[in-house]
Write a protein that binds this DNA or RNA. Structure first.
Lengths: 229, 229
DNA sequence: CCACTGTTTCGATGGGGCATCGAAACAGGC
DNA sequence: GCCTGTTTCGATGCCCCATCGAAACAGTGG
């Protein structure tokens, strides 16, 4: 996914696996895929390395040839998870519409993206907080996200379309809302991700707009831009 | 806290502790206090039973005389944490003001209460989700909370003061927002709990009100009611 | 005063997860 | 056919959770 380049490293053969199945692709990717799925079902704490190894046809200790520690697997997972909202924000910023429209689009798409994740982002957040080294790039990217969002909010208040709120606090709150939603809606909720995203965006933007009459036009404009695909 | 009655059970003496310190109060309470503090610092996963035992002057295995499993300690902690918002909602409902005012008061106070918790409520949520038996009463109380909140929202939309939103989805979102906020603001944030609670309440209510001109009066009325103490 | 009983605590132990280490088992080049 | 680098394994050590049987006390009744 991240590296479409087929510059596969030599991949010389080593000791054959005990479970003599064919090695389909890059073991690293297979491990990440298995880990993602298992952690989604069982949670981080409920997913032992031995289970992941079993899933890809390796013994437990063999995983440590590809990842030094369990957290390194988690870091790789969230790294991919962070790319989406960042690209999202870049695209939205490039379109350069009214702040309210940008926020609406971001909140909605971010919530949808988060709810579509196979695992619980907050679960990994918790571990990442205790390990700033391993997750350094994650936190850096997240800080960037927060700053960019705050900038949009600040522009909105400056031009008078948004209520006078603390931009940084608001940015953090918006992100926290999306993440909080994922917590509750990831698994079989009665609502679709689209419904949830729309609801969150609506609530957030309506809460920020000075004139709520702008809500309808904001939504329409956001729909229009997002519909281009 | 929960039982102000001083009907202390006999507390006959048993084998003396290796660490021969005086046993101040009910060991159960001491254990919960220590666990709460440690888990707040180190997280659930980072707090071994041995550390809790050490804190109260017991050996690891002795903890199991008071709690069968680690989760039982967590359940006891969240049980106390759930009482606050329920009583809050009861009090607010008893006052019986406009839906917007009730929501404002609840969101603000709930956020403040959550941020004041010594441990990470989401961390325990995650474990509680995997153990519906041990945390049965917790989930029951939470469902009640959700239902009551939804009722308030429904009243608001019915009488026309609030926008037409899905009441249940909105209720869950409000709770999720508070919890998401606790996630980010519990530890040394640059904002006070009061600022965070106010911000969340403001954002939520503004997002729900049909006429945002009501926001100021809603806030004033909420302040007035909460000031009675 | 002494056994007996119930309460509280301990030590030992088993099971399981994470991580490390040295060696085994291969493919390919010389 | 031997040497080298790659990949995998098994054994091991440490930590954590939980259980079990026994130890160490305070009271009570004789």
């Amino acid at each position: 996914m991240t590296a479409p380049s087929d510059d596969a490293p030599p991949r010389r053969a080593g000791r054959p696996r005990a479970d003599a199945r064919s090695v389909s692709g890059d073991p690293t990717d297979e491990i990440l895929a298995a880990a993602s799925r298992l952690i989604g079902e069982l949670g981080v704490g409920g997913t032992p390395m031995s289970r992941i190894a079993q899933e890809v046809g390796l013994k437990q200790s063999s995983l440590y040839y590809y990842f030094r520690r369990k957290e390194e697997i988690l870091a790789a997972l969230v790294a991919r998870a962070n790319v989406v909202p960042l690209e999202l924000l870049a695209a939205i910023s490039a379109d350069g519409d009214a702040p309210a429209v940008q926020l609406y689009r971001f909140v909605r798409a971010d919530a949808v993206a988060l709810c579509a994740l196979p695992f619980d982002i907050n679960d990994i957040h918790r571990i990442a907080m205790r390990d700033p080294v391993e997750f350094a790039s994650y936190w850096k990217e997240r800080a960037s996200l927060e700053r960019q969002l705050a900038t949009i909010v600040r522009r909105g208040t400056a031009e008078g379309s948004l209520r006078k709120v603390d931009a940084r606090l608001t940015a953090l709150t918006l992100l926290a809302n999306d993440e909080g939603a994922q917590n509750w809606f990831r698994l079989g909720s009665k609502w679709s991700t689209a419904a949830i995203g729309g609801h969150l965006a609506e609530l957030a933007v309506a809460g920020l707009l000075v004139d709520p009459a702008d809500l309808a036009t904001t939504r329409r404009r956001a729909d229009e831009l997002d519909a281009r695909t």
